[in-house]
Design a protein around this nucleic acid. Structure first.
Length: 635
DNA sequence: CTAGGGCCTG
DNA sequence: CAGGCCCTAG
């Protein structure tokens, strides 16, 4: 059988599809083979799996109950019963009812009687799945009444749909990648990997949804046929369509003759139906689990790099924190507890070579509904807008929240809205596995910044967010997590009180926890350039105010902590007002103000470059930045 | 040519 | 704050 994957883009070229692997119900591209790396670092119980298992559990409970009333002969000998389900009432509910309060999530196969009967059905399920994964060309749809044709057509639909969907994101990515090629090499590998993962998630999510509908349709269709044409003939058709294993078919026919009548057949068919769904759920859930695990592996593998630029003692500390984080991650049910939120305060810039920082984009926004309007699905437990200097204490973030958000809104969703999620996740209300990711408008501007803060415990790494959130965006400036964080920005602002024109060497000395590269350096320099811009604008503004206000002597102009100028500056560079601004800064500010006042008074501002002289003067007034700022954990 | 700085804009 | 553009010093 041709097992051409429905989505080639997510198909690992190195992977060989083994069609005879009975246990492999997954589509080729979802097979475990792709994720053979050690998964020791990620012990979470993935949410999707969690939800699906709940469904499976429910199904199995039903199944087991049914078997209690099923004649032994029906179980042991009718391995391939093909009766039509006269009872289809559970179809819809079975798939949608994920809200079970049942806490037994791990009712795995051990307790399930894997009789030949069941195994045979499992084999048929596998065939169905294969049919769906089949290449569009390997099937004929001449016979529209034939179930095989039906399945095959469905496979094509999925194939085409996946094809279509994968083109959109790719196109977007190309647009982005065209901006800069210099960073592609460094990031291509990981980005590609993340992109692949995202596509897998999309495909699986979609597949799950389609499978639901397809099976519902299939059984409804079959059911009505039974009423019209008789059960026996229809069973045969179904058998042909669902199972190419002739030996099994014959066996079924024998058992059919020996069956216990319509009643048992109906039960059996129902069991089959349950089995199908169970198997599909399991397969898909496992696939999704794999993706998450693989992602975690990637993240974990990158974490060590973060340590490179840290001092030994910090590396140690981080190690402990990582362990703690790992423990926390393993408790998806654990209520959210406060923790640093920088992890999703920042995001990669949209284009390469770009710096990574953008506090202005860090403002949290609630998720948008499909109509693009702001929605508040639940009571917002945390304030949406936090000053950059405060969020680190006020916005709890749990890994489970991130995953939950991912499940709810998809990889394109803005994580800035994650704070809208309830601290404790109600699984019973999270049956939105099939919720289309596409239903959430993708915001082009995801909060930018850097999740980084390696030494911060408990946060899903920056890379994680970036991978899930904007896989198609280049991660600029340093792949080694090197991004500058909001705390770095805060620190830089405070440093501005001492130095307005820091050299790149000074910056490197005072940001030892930053892995410097060209991007980072220019970003930091850009920051100070922006700081200066704001500073000079304020100076000019207040100098002109003084003139307008009739100040006749420059000596009448002074800058104190009570001055309006100072308040404006302090508000900008020391918003939290938790830093004692050095006296020297007041002096420099006063000097600057005087210079502007004099220049303007002398009408020097008619010269386009009249400020340059002032810049030159101010540039000589830099002070040494206290050594305390050299500490990576200064803030 | 590159690093930096300034200016303008979003 | 980020980007782009221009300019200049080394």
């Amino acid at each position: 059988m041709n097992l051409t994957p429905p989505d080639q883009s997510i198909h690992n070229p190195n992977e060989v599809c083994v069609e005879d692997n009975k246990a492999d119900v997954m589509l080729p591209c979802f097979r475990r083979d792709m994720y053979e790396e050690p998964l020791s670092s990620y012990h979470n119980s993935p949410l999707i799996s969690h939800l699906l298992r709940k469904t499976i559990h429910n199904k199995r409970s039903i199944l087991n109950n049914n078997q209690l009333y099923m004649p032994a002969t029906s179980i042991s000998s009718s391995s391939m019963v093909e009766s039509r389900p006269t009872i289809t009432e559970t179809a819809q509910d079975d798939w949608s009812n994920l809200s079970s309060k049942d806490s037994q999530l791990e009712s795995a196969s051990p307790e399930y009687p894997l009789s030949e009967h069941v195994q045979a059905k499992r084999a048929r399920v596998e065939n169905i799945i294969r049919g769906m994964a089949s290449s569009p060309s390997d099937k004929s749809h001449a016979d529209r009444e034939n179930s095989e044709s039906e399945v095959s057509r469905y496979g094509r639909e999925v194939y085409k749909e996946n094809k279509r969907k994968q083109k959109l994101p790719q196109h977007q990515e190309h647009n982005h990648s065209g901006i800069s090629e210099t960073n592609l090499d460094a990031n291509a590998s990981r980005e590609e990997e993340c992109h692949k993962l995202r596509k897998q998630l999309q495909s699986m999510q979609r597949l799950l949804h389609q499978l639901q509908e397809k099976f519902l349709h299939m059984y409804d269709h079959s059911s009505s046929e039974s009423e019209e044409k008789g059960e026996q003939q229809d069973s045969h058709d179904l058998d042909v369509g669902m199972n190419s294993d002739n030996s099994n078919t014959h066996e079924h026919k024998d058992s059919w003759k020996l069956g216990d009548g319509c009643l048992s057949l109906q039960r059996d068919q129902k069991n089959l139906q349950e089995m199908l769904k169970c198997e599909l759920s399991r397969a898909i859930s496992e696939s999704i689990d794999m993706v998450f695990r693989r992602l975690s592996v990637i993240l974990e593998n990158q974490s060590p790099q973060l340590h490179l630029c840290q001092s030994p003692e910090h590396s140690n500390m981080e190690k402990q924190e990582q362990q703690a984080r790992s423990r926390e991650s393993s408790e998806l049910e654990t209520a959210t507890k406060p923790r640093p939120a920088e992890c999703f305060e920042s995001t990669p810039s949209h284009s390469p070579e770009h710096q990574t920082e953008a506090l202005s984009l860090v403002v949290r926004k609630p998720p948008l509904n499909p109509l693009g309007s702001v929605t508040h699905p639940v009571k917002r437990p945390y304030p949406l807008h936090q000053p950059p200097f405060q969020f680190s204490h006020s916005t709890p973030l749990h890994d489970s929240q991130i995953l939950e958000h991912l499940l709810k809104y998809g990889p394109h969703a803005n994580f800035s809205g994650i704070s809208c999620l309830p601290p404790s996740l109600d699984r019973s209300s999270t049956d939105s596995v099939a919720l289309p990711w596409e239903s959430i408008a993708m915001r082009s501007k995801v909060s930018s910044g850097h999740l980084g803060q390696h030494h911060r415990p408990g946060a899903l790494s920056q890379v994680a967010i970036e991978s899930l959130c904007l896989p198609q965006v280049k991660m600029e400036c340093g792949q080694l997590q090197k991004g500058l964080t909001p705390n770095h920005l805060k620190k830089a602002k405070l440093m501005f009180f001492y130095t307005r024109y820091p050299s790149s060497n000074i910056l490197k000395a005072y940001f030892p926890d930053v892995k410097f590269n060209r991007c980072i350096t220019s970003q930091l320099i850009k920051w100070f350039s922006n700081f200066r811009e704001f500073y000079y604008i304020q100076m000019e503004k207040f100098a002109r105010h003084a003139i307008v206000d009739g100040v006749s002597d420059v000596k009448d102009i002074s800058v104190t902590r009570d001055s309006e100028v100072f308040r404006a500056l302090n508000m900008h560079y020391n918003k939290a007002n938790d830093f004692q601004v050095p006296e020297r800064f007041l002096e420099v500010a006063e000097i600057t103000l005087h210079e502007f006042y004099n220049a303007i008074s002398l009408s020097k501002d008619s010269d386009p470059s009249w400020k340059k002289a002032i810049y030159k003067i101010i540039g000589k007034l830099d002070s040494d930045v206290p050594d305390e700022f050299k500490s990576p954990s200064y803030l």
